[in-house]
Design a protein around this nucleic acid. Sequence first.
RNA 1: CGGAGUGUAGCGCAGUCUGGUAGCGCACCUGGUUUGGGACCAGGGGGUCGAAGGUUCGAGUCCUUUCACUCCGACCA
Length: 568
Amino acid sequence: MKFSRLLVPTTKETPNDATLASHIYLIRGGFIQSVGGSGLYNFLPLGKKVLDKVRAVVKEELDKVGCQEVSLSFVTPASLWQESGRFEKYGKELLRFKDRKNNDFILGPTHEEMMVNLVRQAVKSYKQLPLNLYQINLKFRDEIRPRFGLMRGREFLMKDGYSFHTSEEDMKREFNLMEETYKKIFTRLGLEFRVVEADSGAIGGSGSKEFMVLADSGEDTIVVCDKCEYGANIEAAVRQEKECEVEAPEAVFAKFHTPDTTTIEALSAFFHVDPYYLVKTVAKRALYDEDKSEVVLFALRGSDELQEVKACNAVDANDLVDIGEEELEAAGLVAGYMGPTVVPEGVRVVLDNNLKEATSMICGANEKGYHLVGNSFKGVEADYHDLVAVQEGDLCPNCGAPMRYTKGIEAGHIFQLGTQYSEPLGATFLDVNGKAKPMVMGTYGIGVSRLLAAIIEQNHDDKGCIWTKESAPFDLQLIVSNIKDEEQVALGKKLYKTLSDKGFDVLFDDRKDRFGAKMKDYELLGVPYAVVIGKKLQDGLVEFVTRDGLAKEEVPVDAIVDLVSQKV
RNA sequence: CGGAGUGUAGCGCAGUCUGGUAGCGCACCUGGUUUGGGACCAGGGGGUCGAAGGUUCGAGUCCUUUCACUCCGACCA
């Protein structure tokens, strides 16, 4: 491709809303174009090319292990979503609209319903299973706050795959196969990533794993162990039970006057007791379907932090929201002095697993200015769940080594769904005995357009993009320094033809611009290698540039084709 | 939805307080000079000043309404 013919509107200036490297460089490099803000983007020729390359890698690896590509209609009748119950449940991210006949439709944010519908119509027998179908198509989520360019757009390209099985075991086999396949995909794309345990969120299901591209700008906090393979999203991370070196305070059960002692720190100082022996009680309002809600107290050790997603799952709520002071009062709770042992009617209590068997604990008396000491949870029947947010330094549940936090970009997510959708939607098959059974499902996603952003987040410098081999828009950029120098131009044309004939995808910078402008564009676009034909041509030399690190090597003209063949 | 802010040329902004000919930089077009780090000179094109209504002889500027977008906290590939 000749640069002079290519539509790549590169700019010197940064759009004012772009803060992330990937956002800045994808816009400045003319890969994508913002469509009036609000998380919508056009892909320009270069962006489209990269997108197609990434998509091709995904498709190749999936097809290799027997997945089949389909394409589901983007506009979805709402009736399907009403059948699964998600039409109401999914929330405002689901874009709903009506057609001219006043029928409800949605724009698919994910396609479980559609795929199940496809399969239930076409698959009737165990002989047709297992099946793994996927598509690489647009999705639309009316995000509350789109930002970061392709990282969190409202319209995005996603690969979503769904597998259907006759048994749980077979589904797990496929789940593991997908994990391996995803690893191959991310590895081929040149990404540094980590597979972590995850929360299943709105999709539902049991076991789920996320593929996190490691980058400081990532929106997710993940907990990793350096000694072993363990890694988990903070929302799902677990740890070895914490011990406390400080001895438990000796005390019999009693009520103490504790004025102005409303925080864990103050309480710890007041009693000279380690926070480990205090009960932290967090009140939240849990929201359920049909506008139902209730007040829930989550109790855990004072030395721990509440993990909201775990808490939300513990009560099976759609969401948890903070409670204001008036609302607390109305529920009969005293801010700063709440405790799980003294609870007004209508307030639900959930205890953290770590409180099971805990003794010598201090907690609020639900009375202004009073705490209770010497509480024991030994043998107490209650609603116990894992509620704690794993901290840095907590011990790995596998090997016991200290764990640390790191940041990741969620680029893939695989779920063991079970029969969550097949049952309500009636996707059944006849087994060997002629009995109807719901299909056991798995679902597997990759954020394809987000991957472009992720690749750049992980591979860039202060000058621009550094594409990895499999994602690069071109193999090589051929730069003629001075277009008025006939000798340079002649060599450029010759090399362009030779290298193209050899099968390299070459971007030939034949523009009239000056050397500086061309180099800046080269660095911004981030093609892995460049050959610069410039002044040194008088001495029979050209320059071979490696984008990653910008190392430059002077090479005799007649050796350059071999060098390119060998390196690129 | 909560809080803060911005809408003026393709992009980035000034002008608004104090009403009086629509501006600057980048980009774009023409001609010329330049060609190893985003060049220079000269000339040029491009605007319902987010929208609607109002005040006024006169509104980008003042008033009312409305829409959109951005930024900070809860979602997700």
